[in-house]
Design a protein around this nucleic acid. Structure first.
Lengths: 201, 201, 201, 201
DNA sequence: CTGTAAGCGAGACGGTACGTCGAGTCTTCCG
DNA sequence: CGGAAGACTCGACGTACCGTCTCGCTTACAG
């Protein structure tokens, strides 16, 4: 299941993947997911909007989710946390990044909810999501936490993973599950807690 | 959309709801959701398994989600956190409760993911989920946190909601989103953090 | 299958048929068959319009057709052919009666088509139709033809049934099957033919 | 609504209609209409019997009636009236053709009744029936009557349409409506009448 | 005058079929 | 020979009615 369109250099003769179709499909996916949301998004609809046969989509993507991942990737890729050199503001940046990601205004919240549900019965999609979105973002956040340790603002032995989750999870949880308010005071509160009591393994 | 079967005292004349069908539908739903998961669960399948007409289901439930909520309610209702009188163990209980809820073994994790996704495009379902599951459980947890405040283990002015989320969200987040490990040391770590730095409004 | 409401003198105790419901059902049937036609007429719709339970309809009529027969009977009963004493005008009356019956304006044509179709797979309905409508009307027409014979305008031994059919069938055929024009010159033409060559057995 | 499968020379690309499905559907329709009659014939049943998806049927036919027309067409197409050169026998042939058509043994009578009823609330079906069956057969009969005129056996100015109806209508009427006997003496009697008194416009 | 046997409205029940939609696969033709 | 077009089988959707079946009530004869 190729989730990315990297051209295969060992490809035989014959016609190569048409980049115009590729782009049209991604564009159509974005358009449609914005219009109708993830749940009502259909391959058929994307094909029609893109002016493309359904089989062209199935040839290159294994599922609706895989297609959305690639389409969203271009638009919604991890807005990097600014490295200010100040631990407090960098950790706040982690929370802020999550808040932006789950923001209702971009419609991303609904899409994430859909992808998350689908990844529970589609292993390929799970791998794609983890590889493409979740792990890269965590890697970036890990760097920040490790800088804070190096700087001495967090103790050696800090459980980096847990610290990240303590910053990000409340945002995700309120956005996806409890429909709770996500106010501007949240980053400060979470960062305070982490700095006051970082978990040491 | 009646989600609960409380008898309507103002009921008119006419034949009453058949409790045997009602129960058969709930049982079939549980059976099937276990067998095939939430995503592949169909009204048609439930009706067939229950030996019931589809219309009997549609008459009483507005969606697959609403039906699952009621069916799961019987089995999965908030296992109450034991009130030991000890703040540390009671707060741990909150985390443990969440861990049990999202446990993979009951299959609940996948179901929750599906319900969560659906609640983002189905207002009725959202209300039902919040009323039936999310808010009651939070209410129970709120009591526990307030006991801790009363006991003096948490300061007056503690942001109760945030404390609950700091305990529960990491579990939910790892279970649903990051597919991360949820170890037995998690409750202790999270409770430590909360007690060491409870957020005060 | 009681098609008529004749009271059963051997009835036990208990409540008798409510004439108000009976009438309301017939009225509703007429209303509805006019609004939506025979094909889209439903028992459920009639019950709702009449403010009556479905079972009350099923208790007294065996089918949609039986009900329509009784309801239409009141409105559409054989408009008798005027007995003028003149053979030509009386025979013309037979044709004119048929033309009125199949007239598009009363909507009867569509209803008759529906009843005719149903009588081919519903023996009760067939009997009811024949008893209630077809045979009585034929009996009336037979009288007219026999008067013509008695008067000497048709020979002894005339095949009465065939003469009637030669007058009525073309109207029915054009109305139901060929969608052909049924002009005012038709009665004259058909009567001429019958008088010029009555079939003798 | 394509009722006939004539290949479209301007067809675009894409997969073409599968003739195996087409034939299977027509065969299943014939089988089933024979087994259960027109009224109990269902699209669902046909699809199942043909081993075909329902949508394949709906893609090519607009209604049960349209499908039956095409399916019957193959089996029941106008058995041509033999042109013997003898007016009396040719006109008799018209009646005999009708008698065969409405014959109970082929089951056609019930089917015709159903189609006739449906054509009263389905314009597409009406057009299809007229184009496919009624008008072609009439055209054939018109030729016969015109030959009789040319031969001098019927006068110039004969109302051809009315003559045809005088021959065919009694058969149709007795078969569909009055459930009357259709004996072997009927053609002779009707032809006699027509020849004795053909209507002149 | 009362008991009881219908009839009644309401409407839930198990079903069947509807016509539509989308999934994922397969075939045909065009550039 | 890749890709568009689009027909294919399949399965589920949510709706409409079917004819049957309780319900709890009214009604009106029989005793």
């Amino acid at each position: 299941m190729p989730t990315e369109g990297q051209a295969d250099p060992t490809a035989g003769s014959g016609r190569r993947r048409d980049p115009r179709s590729h782009q049209a499909i991604l564009d159509a996916t974005l358009d449609l997911v914005e219009d109708v949301g993830y749940a009502r998004l259909t391959i058929e609809g994307i094909a029609a909007r893109a002016g493309v046969g359904k089989s062209t989509i199935y040839r290159w993507w294994s599922s609706k989710g895989a297609l959305v991942i690639e389409a969203l990737g271009e638009v919604l890729d991890p807005p990097p946390v600014p490295l200010t050199g100040d631990t407090r503001s960098e950790l706040s940046g982690i929370v802020a990044q999550a808040m932006r990601l789950y923001s209702d205004e971009t419609g991303a919240r609904t899409i994430i909810a859909g992808l998350v549900a689908d990844m529970h019965h589609d292993e390929d999609l799970r791998d794609a999501l983890l590889d493409r979105f979740i792990r890269p973002r965590r890697a970036g956040n890990r760097v920040i936490v490790e800088r804070a340790i190096a700087r001495g603002d967090l103790p050696d032995g800090t459980d980096v993973e847990l610290v990240i989750d303590r910053l990000v999870a409340p945002v995700s949880y309120r956005a996806l599950v409890t429909w709770g308010e996500i106010g501007d005071d949240l980053p400060g509160a979470l960062v305070d807690a982490v700095l006051a009591h970082p978990n040491v393994r």
